[in-house]
Design a protein around this nucleic acid. Structure first.
Length: 314
DNA sequence: AATAGGCGCAACCGCTTCGGG
DNA sequence: ACCCGAAGCGGTTGCGCCTAT
Protein backbone atom coordinates (compact mmCIF):
# COMPACT_ATOMS: atom_id res chain seq x y z
CA UNK A 1 0.00 0.00 0.00
CA UNK A 2 2.78 2.36 0.80
CA UNK A 3 4.51 3.38 -2.36
CA UNK A 4 7.94 4.81 -2.86
CA UNK A 5 6.32 8.19 -2.61
CA UNK A 6 5.42 7.44 0.97
CA UNK A 7 8.64 5.74 1.97
CA UNK A 8 9.47 6.90 5.48
CA UNK A 9 12.11 9.56 5.55
CA UNK A 10 15.65 8.96 6.74
CA UNK A 11 15.76 9.83 10.50
CA UNK A 12 19.06 11.60 10.08
CA UNK A 13 17.57 13.71 7.40
CA UNK A 14 14.70 14.54 9.73
CA UNK A 15 17.11 15.74 12.39
CA UNK A 16 18.90 17.89 9.90
CA UNK A 17 15.71 19.14 8.50
CA UNK A 18 14.32 20.06 11.87
CA UNK A 19 16.92 22.79 11.91
CA UNK A 20 16.26 23.75 8.39
CA UNK A 21 13.28 25.96 7.81
CA UNK A 22 13.39 25.19 4.14
CA UNK A 23 13.03 21.47 4.67
CA UNK A 24 11.16 19.71 1.96
CA UNK A 25 7.70 18.74 3.14
CA UNK A 26 6.42 15.31 2.35
CA UNK A 27 3.27 14.73 0.36
CA UNK A 28 1.19 11.74 -0.47
CA UNK A 29 0.06 8.84 1.64
CA UNK A 30 1.02 8.68 5.25
CA UNK A 31 3.31 5.94 6.51
CA UNK A 32 2.46 3.99 9.69
CA UNK A 33 5.40 5.68 11.38
CA UNK A 34 4.03 9.10 10.60
CA UNK A 35 0.61 8.10 11.84
CA UNK A 36 2.13 6.83 15.04
CA UNK A 37 4.02 10.05 15.60
CA UNK A 38 0.96 12.16 15.06
CA UNK A 39 -1.28 10.03 17.24
CA UNK A 40 1.29 9.99 20.01
CA UNK A 41 1.74 13.73 19.87
CA UNK A 42 -1.96 14.48 19.73
CA UNK A 43 -2.81 12.18 22.62
CA UNK A 44 -0.03 13.67 24.71
CA UNK A 45 -0.36 17.32 23.86
CA UNK A 46 -3.80 17.74 22.42
CA UNK A 47 -4.77 19.97 19.59
CA UNK A 48 -3.00 23.23 19.04
CA UNK A 49 -1.50 25.16 16.19
CA UNK A 50 -1.19 22.64 13.41
CA UNK A 51 2.04 23.94 12.00
CA UNK A 52 3.55 23.66 15.47
CA UNK A 53 2.18 20.15 15.81
CA UNK A 54 3.77 19.14 12.54
CA UNK A 55 7.11 20.54 13.65
CA UNK A 56 7.04 19.34 17.23
CA UNK A 57 5.89 15.86 16.34
CA UNK A 58 8.88 15.50 14.04
CA UNK A 59 6.80 15.22 10.95
CA UNK A 60 7.92 16.46 7.57
CA UNK A 61 4.41 17.51 6.81
CA UNK A 62 2.67 20.81 6.62
CA UNK A 63 0.18 21.57 9.38
CA UNK A 64 -2.62 21.35 6.93
CA UNK A 65 -1.70 17.81 6.01
CA UNK A 66 -1.48 16.84 9.69
CA UNK A 67 -4.83 18.36 10.43
CA UNK A 68 -6.46 16.49 7.57
CA UNK A 69 -4.87 13.20 8.54
CA UNK A 70 -5.96 13.56 12.13
CA UNK A 71 -9.49 14.69 11.38
CA UNK A 72 -10.19 12.27 8.58
CA UNK A 73 -8.35 9.19 9.69
CA UNK A 74 -6.58 9.13 13.04
CA UNK A 75 -9.09 10.68 15.42
CA UNK A 76 -10.01 8.08 18.04
CA UNK A 77 -13.72 8.86 17.90
CA UNK A 78 -14.03 8.03 14.24
CA UNK A 79 -16.51 5.40 13.21
CA UNK A 80 -15.01 3.18 10.57
CA UNK A 81 -16.77 0.92 8.15
CA UNK A 82 -19.73 1.11 5.86
CA UNK A 83 -22.56 3.56 6.33
CA UNK A 84 -25.67 2.09 7.87
CA UNK A 85 -28.99 2.47 6.05
CA UNK A 86 -30.01 4.98 8.72
CA UNK A 87 -26.91 7.02 8.11
CA UNK A 88 -27.48 6.80 4.40
CA UNK A 89 -31.03 8.09 4.73
CA UNK A 90 -29.91 10.84 7.02
CA UNK A 91 -27.21 11.92 4.59
CA UNK A 92 -29.69 12.10 1.75
CA UNK A 93 -32.10 13.95 3.96
CA UNK A 94 -29.53 16.41 5.22
CA UNK A 95 -28.13 16.92 1.77
CA UNK A 96 -31.58 17.86 0.55
CA UNK A 97 -31.56 20.60 3.15
CA UNK A 98 -27.95 21.65 3.34
CA UNK A 99 -26.63 20.86 -0.10
CA UNK A 100 -22.91 20.25 -0.37
CA UNK A 101 -22.18 21.61 3.08
CA UNK A 102 -20.37 18.45 3.99
CA UNK A 103 -18.99 19.69 7.25
CA UNK A 104 -22.46 20.60 8.47
CA UNK A 105 -23.78 17.23 7.41
CA UNK A 106 -20.84 15.51 9.09
CA UNK A 107 -21.51 17.46 12.27
CA UNK A 108 -24.81 15.62 12.51
CA UNK A 109 -23.34 12.20 11.92
CA UNK A 110 -21.20 11.27 14.93
CA UNK A 111 -17.95 9.61 13.99
CA UNK A 112 -18.15 10.50 10.34
CA UNK A 113 -16.03 13.05 8.54
CA UNK A 114 -17.00 15.51 5.89
CA UNK A 115 -14.53 13.90 3.52
CA UNK A 116 -16.00 10.49 4.13
CA UNK A 117 -19.53 11.72 3.55
CA UNK A 118 -18.51 13.67 0.49
CA UNK A 119 -16.84 10.61 -1.00
CA UNK A 120 -19.79 8.47 -0.10
CA UNK A 121 -22.15 10.91 -1.71
CA UNK A 122 -20.10 11.36 -4.85
CA UNK A 123 -19.73 7.67 -5.40
CA UNK A 124 -22.45 5.55 -3.91
CA UNK A 125 -25.43 7.80 -3.41
CA UNK A 126 -24.98 9.92 -6.50
CA UNK A 127 -24.74 6.83 -8.62
CA UNK A 128 -27.81 5.34 -7.03
CA UNK A 129 -29.78 8.52 -7.41
CA UNK A 130 -28.76 8.83 -11.01
CA UNK A 131 -30.05 5.34 -11.65
CA UNK A 132 -33.27 6.21 -9.89
CA UNK A 133 -33.51 9.44 -11.79
CA UNK A 134 -33.50 7.55 -15.05
CA UNK A 135 -36.62 5.81 -13.83
CA UNK A 136 -38.38 8.98 -12.77
CA UNK A 137 -40.86 10.33 -15.33
CA UNK A 138 -40.74 14.02 -16.14
CA UNK A 139 -43.45 14.72 -13.60
CA UNK A 140 -42.07 13.95 -10.15
CA UNK A 141 -45.44 13.09 -8.65
CA UNK A 142 -45.63 10.10 -10.89
CA UNK A 143 -42.69 8.56 -9.19
CA UNK A 144 -43.37 5.17 -7.76
CA UNK A 145 -40.22 5.11 -5.71
CA UNK A 146 -40.50 3.58 -2.30
CA UNK A 147 -38.13 6.07 -0.74
CA UNK A 148 -39.40 9.62 -0.87
CA UNK A 149 -36.11 11.05 0.32
CA UNK A 150 -34.23 9.40 -2.46
CA UNK A 151 -36.89 10.43 -4.90
CA UNK A 152 -36.55 14.05 -4.02
CA UNK A 153 -32.80 13.84 -4.00
CA UNK A 154 -32.88 12.17 -7.39
CA UNK A 155 -35.01 14.97 -8.70
CA UNK A 156 -32.63 17.44 -7.24
CA UNK A 157 -29.81 15.75 -9.03
CA UNK A 158 -31.17 17.14 -12.24
CA UNK A 159 -30.44 20.65 -11.19
CA UNK A 160 -27.07 22.31 -10.97
CA UNK A 161 -24.16 20.54 -9.42
CA UNK A 162 -24.38 22.79 -6.42
CA UNK A 163 -27.50 20.84 -5.54
CA UNK A 164 -31.09 21.80 -5.14
CA UNK A 165 -30.67 22.64 -1.54
CA UNK A 166 -28.64 25.64 -2.38
CA UNK A 167 -31.96 27.34 -2.71
CA UNK A 168 -30.89 29.50 0.16
CA UNK A 169 -27.87 30.79 -1.70
CA UNK A 170 -27.13 29.00 -4.90
CA UNK A 171 -30.34 29.69 -6.68
CA UNK A 172 -30.14 33.32 -5.85
CA UNK A 173 -26.62 33.58 -7.08
CA UNK A 174 -27.69 32.01 -10.30
CA UNK A 175 -30.28 34.61 -11.12
CA UNK A 176 -27.66 36.85 -12.53
CA UNK A 177 -25.79 34.06 -14.20
CA UNK A 178 -26.10 34.09 -17.98
CA UNK A 179 -25.56 30.36 -17.92
CA UNK A 180 -28.40 29.88 -15.52
CA UNK A 181 -30.58 28.42 -18.23
CA UNK A 182 -28.20 25.56 -18.60
CA UNK A 183 -28.09 24.74 -14.97
CA UNK A 184 -31.68 23.85 -14.34
CA UNK A 185 -34.01 21.25 -15.62
CA UNK A 186 -36.31 22.74 -18.17
CA UNK A 187 -38.62 19.79 -18.43
CA UNK A 188 -42.24 20.23 -17.61
CA UNK A 189 -42.40 24.01 -17.64
CA UNK A 190 -43.70 26.47 -20.15
CA UNK A 191 -41.13 27.87 -22.49
CA UNK A 192 -40.50 30.97 -20.44
CA UNK A 193 -40.27 29.10 -17.18
CA UNK A 194 -37.47 27.09 -15.73
CA UNK A 195 -38.69 24.41 -13.44
CA UNK A 196 -36.53 23.69 -10.47
CA UNK A 197 -36.90 20.20 -9.09
CA UNK A 198 -38.45 20.14 -5.66
CA UNK A 199 -35.86 21.41 -3.27
CA UNK A 200 -35.16 21.50 0.39
CA UNK A 201 -37.59 19.07 1.90
CA UNK A 202 -38.51 15.49 1.56
CA UNK A 203 -41.90 14.24 0.61
CA UNK A 204 -42.22 12.63 3.99
CA UNK A 205 -42.13 16.05 5.53
CA UNK A 206 -44.70 17.34 3.14
CA UNK A 207 -47.21 14.91 4.50
CA UNK A 208 -50.21 14.09 2.42
CA UNK A 209 -49.96 17.13 0.27
CA UNK A 210 -49.12 16.61 -3.31
CA UNK A 211 -46.21 18.72 -4.35
CA UNK A 212 -46.53 18.29 -8.04
CA UNK A 213 -43.87 20.50 -9.50
CA UNK A 214 -41.96 22.44 -6.94
CA UNK A 215 -40.60 25.84 -7.64
CA UNK A 216 -40.53 27.79 -10.82
CA UNK A 217 -37.90 30.28 -11.67
CA UNK A 218 -38.94 32.74 -14.27
CA UNK A 219 -36.22 34.10 -16.42
CA UNK A 220 -35.96 37.83 -16.30
CA UNK A 221 -33.24 38.03 -18.85
CA UNK A 222 -30.52 37.74 -16.28
CA UNK A 223 -31.68 40.90 -14.57
CA UNK A 224 -33.64 39.42 -11.74
CA UNK A 225 -35.48 36.29 -10.83
CA UNK A 226 -39.00 35.42 -10.01
CA UNK A 227 -39.70 32.55 -7.75
CA UNK A 228 -43.12 31.03 -7.64
CA UNK A 229 -45.19 28.11 -6.59
CA UNK A 230 -46.81 26.36 -9.42
CA UNK A 231 -50.49 25.66 -9.68
CA UNK A 232 -51.81 22.61 -7.95
CA UNK A 233 -48.88 22.43 -5.64
CA UNK A 234 -50.90 21.75 -2.54
CA UNK A 235 -53.54 19.15 -2.17
CA UNK A 236 -56.98 20.57 -2.68
CA UNK A 237 -55.65 23.92 -3.71
CA UNK A 238 -57.19 25.63 -6.63
CA UNK A 239 -54.56 28.12 -7.45
CA UNK A 240 -55.66 31.07 -9.47
CA UNK A 241 -52.24 31.67 -10.86
CA UNK A 242 -48.56 31.51 -10.20
CA UNK A 243 -47.68 33.11 -6.93
CA UNK A 244 -44.46 34.90 -7.09
CA UNK A 245 -41.70 36.51 -5.17
CA UNK A 246 -39.58 39.07 -6.88
CA UNK A 247 -35.94 38.73 -6.18
CA UNK A 248 -33.43 41.33 -7.12
CA UNK A 249 -29.83 40.84 -8.10
CA UNK A 250 -28.74 40.96 -4.50
CA UNK A 251 -31.05 38.18 -3.59
CA UNK A 252 -33.49 40.39 -1.76
CA UNK A 253 -37.04 39.20 -1.76
CA UNK A 254 -38.89 42.40 -2.32
CA UNK A 255 -42.47 41.38 -2.20
CA UNK A 256 -44.80 38.49 -2.42
CA UNK A 257 -47.67 38.57 -4.88
CA UNK A 258 -50.61 37.26 -2.95
CA UNK A 259 -52.15 34.75 -5.23
CA UNK A 260 -53.66 31.53 -4.12
CA UNK A 261 -52.53 31.94 -0.58
CA UNK A 262 -54.83 34.83 0.02
CA UNK A 263 -57.60 33.29 -1.97
CA UNK A 264 -57.43 30.04 -0.12
CA UNK A 265 -56.82 29.94 3.58
CA UNK A 266 -56.32 26.23 3.58
CA UNK A 267 -53.59 26.53 1.06
CA UNK A 268 -51.88 29.16 3.11
CA UNK A 269 -51.89 26.97 6.16
CA UNK A 270 -50.62 24.00 4.26
CA UNK A 271 -48.02 25.97 2.46
CA UNK A 272 -46.57 27.62 5.47
CA UNK A 273 -46.71 24.90 8.03
CA UNK A 274 -46.35 21.65 6.19
CA UNK A 275 -44.34 22.48 3.18
CA UNK A 276 -41.81 24.37 5.21
CA UNK A 277 -42.02 22.08 8.13
CA UNK A 278 -38.35 22.42 8.93
CA UNK A 279 -38.73 25.88 10.31
CA UNK A 280 -39.02 27.78 7.12
CA UNK A 281 -42.45 28.89 8.15
CA UNK A 282 -41.03 31.72 10.18
CA UNK A 283 -39.20 33.02 7.21
CA UNK A 284 -42.13 32.36 5.00
CA UNK A 285 -44.18 34.57 7.28
CA UNK A 286 -41.57 37.21 6.73
CA UNK A 287 -42.00 36.82 3.02
CA UNK A 288 -45.74 37.07 3.26
CA UNK A 289 -45.34 39.97 5.58
CA UNK A 290 -43.50 41.72 2.84
CA UNK A 291 -40.23 42.06 4.69
CA UNK A 292 -37.03 41.95 2.78
CA UNK A 293 -35.19 38.74 3.40
CA UNK A 294 -32.05 37.38 1.93
CA UNK A 295 -32.10 33.73 1.05
CA UNK A 296 -28.74 33.19 2.68
CA UNK A 297 -30.19 34.30 5.97
CA UNK A 298 -32.80 31.62 6.15
CA UNK A 299 -32.76 29.87 9.46
CA UNK A 300 -30.67 26.79 8.77
CA UNK A 301 -30.53 25.90 12.43
CA UNK A 302 -34.27 26.09 12.53
CA UNK A 303 -34.34 23.79 9.56
CA UNK A 304 -31.99 21.39 11.24
CA UNK A 305 -33.87 21.37 14.52
CA UNK A 306 -36.73 19.75 12.76
CA UNK A 307 -34.53 17.02 11.42
CA UNK A 308 -34.66 15.60 14.92
CA UNK A 309 -37.83 13.89 13.87
CA UNK A 310 -35.74 11.82 11.53
CA UNK A 311 -34.75 8.36 12.75
CA UNK A 312 -31.67 8.62 14.89
CA UNK A 313 -28.38 7.20 13.74
CA UNK A 314 -26.75 4.56 15.86
C1' DA B 1 -3.94 -14.95 -17.61
C1' DA B 2 -3.82 -10.31 -19.11
C1' DT B 3 -5.73 -5.93 -19.21
C1' DA B 4 -8.78 -2.01 -19.50
C1' DG B 5 -12.07 0.48 -17.13
C1' DG B 6 -14.68 1.59 -13.07
C1' DC B 7 -14.75 2.49 -8.30
C1' DG B 8 -13.57 3.98 -3.63
C1' DC B 9 -10.81 6.42 -0.78
C1' DA B 10 -7.03 9.26 0.91
C1' DA B 11 -4.90 13.32 0.18
C1' DC B 12 -3.99 17.65 -2.12
C1' DC B 13 -5.31 22.22 -3.93
C1' DG B 14 -7.21 26.55 -3.87
C1' DC B 15 -10.44 29.54 -2.00
C1' DT B 16 -12.78 31.66 1.96
C1' DT B 17 -13.21 32.87 6.67
C1' DC B 18 -11.51 34.16 11.02
C1' DG B 19 -8.71 36.21 14.42
C1' DG B 20 -4.75 38.61 16.06
C1' DG B 21 -1.35 42.24 15.48
C1' DA C 1 -8.68 49.62 8.13
C1' DC C 2 -5.41 46.60 6.67
C1' DC C 3 -2.39 42.65 6.54
C1' DC C 4 -1.11 38.05 7.39
C1' DG C 5 -1.15 33.43 9.03
C1' DA C 6 -4.02 29.63 10.55
C1' DA C 7 -8.00 27.03 10.08
C1' DG C 8 -11.87 25.33 7.63
C1' DC C 9 -14.17 23.86 3.64
C1' DG C 10 -15.49 21.90 -0.86
C1' DG C 11 -13.77 20.39 -5.29
C1' DT C 12 -10.55 17.63 -7.55
C1' DT C 13 -6.93 14.35 -8.32
C1' DG C 14 -4.21 10.21 -8.03
C1' DC C 15 -3.59 5.62 -6.94
C1' DG C 16 -4.60 0.90 -5.70
C1' DC C 17 -8.09 -2.56 -5.89
C1' DC C 18 -11.75 -5.00 -8.13
C1' DT C 19 -14.23 -6.80 -11.89
C1' DA C 20 -15.68 -7.68 -16.47
C1' DT C 21 -14.09 -9.02 -20.85
Amino acid sequence: MYTAMTKPADPAAINNNNNNKKMKLRKGLWSPEEDEKLIKYMLTNGQGCWSDIARNAGLQRCGKSCRLRWINYLRPDLKRGAFSPQEEDLIVHLHSILGNRWSQIAARLPGRTDNEIKNFWNSTIKKRLKMMNNNIPSSPNNSDSSDPCLTVAAMCLDSSSSSCASLQEGMISQFGDPNFHNSVDTTGGPASFYTMPLPCFSLSQVGNHNISQGLILEDYGGVAGKLGLEQGEFGGTEAAGTNSIDIDMKGNINHYNNGCFNNNNEAEAVGCEDMFGFGLENNWNNIIGGENLRMGEWDLEGLMDNVSSFPSVQ
